[in-house]
Design a protein around this nucleic acid. Structure first.
Lengths: 123, 123
DNA sequence: CATATTTTGACAACCGTTTTCGTTTTCGTG
DNA sequence: CACGAAAACGAAAACGGTTGTCAAAATATG
């Protein structure tokens, strides 16, 4: 793990919620780092490959990343104002997805679930 | 509703599963239409605004569209091999999402749910 | 210390999407 | 049917996020 990559990881861990690559790049530059945008992208890709961060796409097609507290499968509820994310657990959904898959003859069922809303302090 | 827009809608209805704007453009050109790519995008945007089609982003950031059978809120289970999509209903998830939102003090909660798997005929 | 390997970052290339803008088509009205 | 306004169209350029290129710098290896 190189220094730069570690810096990106920390920038991500240090902020709550989902951040875009460009956000993180701006953060790092703001604190004086001379890191390049390319390196941020590379670091995020590596971190996501190794499963250390979650990735998802916004409706605008931008990739956003988040350092996860837990290793296990879980979902998030994200504030659409301040982007703060809370990890939520959903045996309910997991079960529902599995049932639906079975019902329609699908195998190897996976699912993507994202919940958005306005958090208490932003509303 | 203009002629072009109708053509796009039909191209979409005529194919099962999610299709990208460029797919549809290729389809239309293949059958001899002189439609422009711009118009396909505009038509899809209009159709999605009016709720006649569903939109979602692939992991690669590309927007894909699908003509829906029903007007109401629902989800899909998509075959990752042939892209066939089946509409599924989930009072369970709707309720779960609302509960989770309330539990963490979020308001105006919306959600995105997509289920993927391999359909019976592809597995 | 010299050399091989990896990492880095400026910049260009990409790709899907959106905007721009001049042209064409459609449509309402006289 | 003719006219003009408004809407739709399409080619090409612009755009924004992301990825590739490549030479320079950092790091590891002998």
């Amino acid at each position: 793990m190189s220094t730069r990559r570690e810096a990106v990881r920390q920038a991500l861990s240090g902020s709550s919620g989902f951040r875009s690559a460009q956000d993180l790049y701006a953060d790092l530059r703001a604190e004086g780092s001379k890191i390049g945008l390319t390196t941020v992208y590379r670091a995020l890709q590596a971190l996501s490959d190794s499963g250390e961060v979650d990735v998802l796409r916004t409706d605008e097609g931008e990739a956003v990343y988040r350092a996860c507290d837990t290793e296990s499968h879980h979902h998030h509820i994200v504030c659409r104002v301040c982007a703060t994310a809370v990890e939520i657990e959903g045996p309910t959904v997991e079960k529902w997805a599995a049932e639906m898959g079975a019902k329609h003859g699908f195998t190897g069922v996976t699912h993507t679930v994202e919940v958005f809303g306005t958090c208490a302090s932003c509303s």
